[in-house]
Design a protein around this nucleic acid. Sequence first.
DNA 1: TAGATTGTTAATCGATTAACAATC
DNA 2: TAGATTGTTAATCGATTAACAATC
Lengths: 206, 206
Amino acid sequence: MLPERTVERLSEYRRTLLQSLEEGKTHIFSHELAALHHNTAVQVRRDIMFIGYTSMQRKGYDVRDLIDVIGEILDSEKGLNVAVVGIGNLGRAVTTYFVGKRSKLNIIATFDVDHTKIERVISGVKCYSLSRLKEIVESYEISVAIMTVPATSASEVTSQIVDAGIKGIMNFTTVPLIVPDDCYLEEYDMITSLEKVAYFVKSGQS
Amino acid sequence: MLPERTVERLSEYRRTLLQSLEEGKTHIFSHELAALHHNTAVQVRRDIMFIGYTSMQRKGYDVRDLIDVIGEILDSEKGLNVAVVGIGNLGRAVTTYFVGKRSKLNIIATFDVDHTKIERVISGVKCYSLSRLKEIVESYEISVAIMTVPATSASEVTSQIVDAGIKGIMNFTTVPLIVPDDCYLEEYDMITSLEKVAYFVKSGQS
DNA sequence: TAGATTGTTAATCGATTAACAATC
DNA sequence: TAGATTGTTAATCGATTAACAATC
């Protein structure tokens, strides 16, 4: 299993590589990739070493090959199904955002408790009643949930989610969630991030 | 200057503490705070040591005092002014989200290029033309920008932002930005985070 | 060849954790 | 006092960086 930071960087590299490919670049040097990612060339080479890819030419990495290799590491073969839980402002924006990108991550259901939303298609994805969570998660084999419910119901909904068999959560709420060990949790807290920016602005940077 | 990770944790602790205060708790033990934050009691004590707060009683930390001390570290005395740049779906959701919380971070302007949005109040905040960026940033003393423009214009808008005198950026776009050293940059990339979750779900967790 | 680049080991750095004395 | 808790130094761990041999 790769270190978290390496996984993050690989994801970022891939997007830059896809972009480079579109621009007609066939090869890219470690220092080019580094310059685009607040990184050093050594770090890039190390990350690529980690995934066992070698270029065997001093012409840089083959962009297409590298994209494929990163894909083999990061992607599941048949993709991964994702649900958005809580389809308020943020939930809708996030859903639209992800639906826009074609990828191996498919948002295939959203959940809410608001009857005016249930059974409707919102941001391109069908919204189900939260009470049907387990049923839908099981029948569509959803394994990842994006949490965009209000803070007040976050903990409660989380236990339902875990119960339904979700194995990974990306938590947009401001409440730190408690999940069992076999469920991967990514805290994705905007307030913390913005407060961090504010702190370093105030203190004159890092 | 505190380490990044410590700053993040302090921000998270503070919110838990505010919550505890509301629930009528006056004191909290390091192990309680730890349990709520995927953390150890030692880590919590170390973080608190960092900011020079001591409790001097074996009754846990005084919740109210600790909130104040963290505030002195994280907050600027007179608050910090923030702009949201790009007021599409995500920009609106993020604006609404932050405007909802009362804090020392004030979103006081949004920017866009869409004429149907300019000069209107959107999500509770006035939207200005991007062409007036510098003028508004200067007159309102805005120092932080939240970037929610489309990926295609991210780099270009970033140089305008830096030019206008912004000292901290929270980047929601998928394009890694290039900014000068005296501008603090927080890459806040949803795709990377979700791909990370997917990877660890696929690999059977950390 | 000289120059540029990669892959990889060793050294460094920073952050977390363990250990423990101090104290209520 | 014994037990619980804190504050802090020392040890450990993991991730980044430096150094360098190999190769086109």
